[in-house]
């Protein structure tokens, strides 16, 4: 029988002070604090729960690895947002490639094929959002679901604050136009 010897658990102390915590404890606490919100915003970006779960699991794995590089707890949330946005982009890119192979995936929660959302108006709103380009979709989800500031959105997306602001303005105008036509 193979014997396995475990090294001691790594402990972290944030530079600002506080108690030492193991990486697992920190990751678990961060998951408790942010897991659901990240899962839900990932759903809004990729459309289906299974993909959203994959994105969030990957994001937390990345966070676990990145803990030694993060200098303060507040940065963990920002790291997660960036990871979820990037992971969602990756899912959508992969999905486009998969579509060429006719690989199926779960329909978005706002699609007619999905029975998850019953309200027609809400589905119409989200379907209209889904037709927007990638960046406006990300800006709207971070702003109107996570209620992030434009500065926080800019950091999550790697763009300037003014880009976030102008993107949101144009996206809202486009949505208003489309939804009036649809209604």
């Amino acid at each position: 029988m193979t014997e396995h010897v475990a090294p001691a658990a790594r402990l972290f102390r944030w530079p600002q002070g506080g108690a030492c915590e193991s990486a697992d404890d920190i990751a678990e606490r961060l998951f408790r604090d942010h897991g659901l919100a990240m899962l839900r915003v990932a759903l809004l970006l990729v459309g289906d729960r299974a993909s959203a779960e994959d994105v969030v699991q990957d994001a937390f794995i990345g966070l676990h690895r990145a803990l030694p590089r993060l200098q303060e707890p507040a940065k963990a949330a920002g790291y997660l947002r960036v990871a979820v946005v990037n992971g969602s982009r990756s899912v959508l890119r992969t999905r486009r490639r998969a579509a060429l192979r006719r690989v199926q995936h779960e329909p978005p929660v706002w699609s007619a094929e999905s029975a998850v959302m019953a309200d027609e108006d809400r589905r119409a709103v989200l379907a209209a959002v889904a037709r927007l380009p990638r960046r406006p979709r990300e800006v709207l989800a971070l702003r109107y679901y996570l209620d992030l500031t434009d500065q926080q959105i800019a950091e999550a997306l790697g763009v300037s604050r003014s880009t976030v602001s102008s993107t949101a303005t144009r996206a809202l105008a486009a949505l208003a136009r489309e939804l009036r036509e649809d209604m």
């Binding site: 839900r40 759903l43 809004l44 706002w110 998850v116 959302m117 809400r122 989200l126 809202l172």
Partner: peptide, 13 residues
């Protein structure tokens, strides 16, 4: 409407 739709979709999880 956007906030409401996002909230409804998110709560499916």
């Amino acid at each position: 409407r956007l906030r409401d739709a996002y909230r409804a979709a998110a709560q499916t999880i």
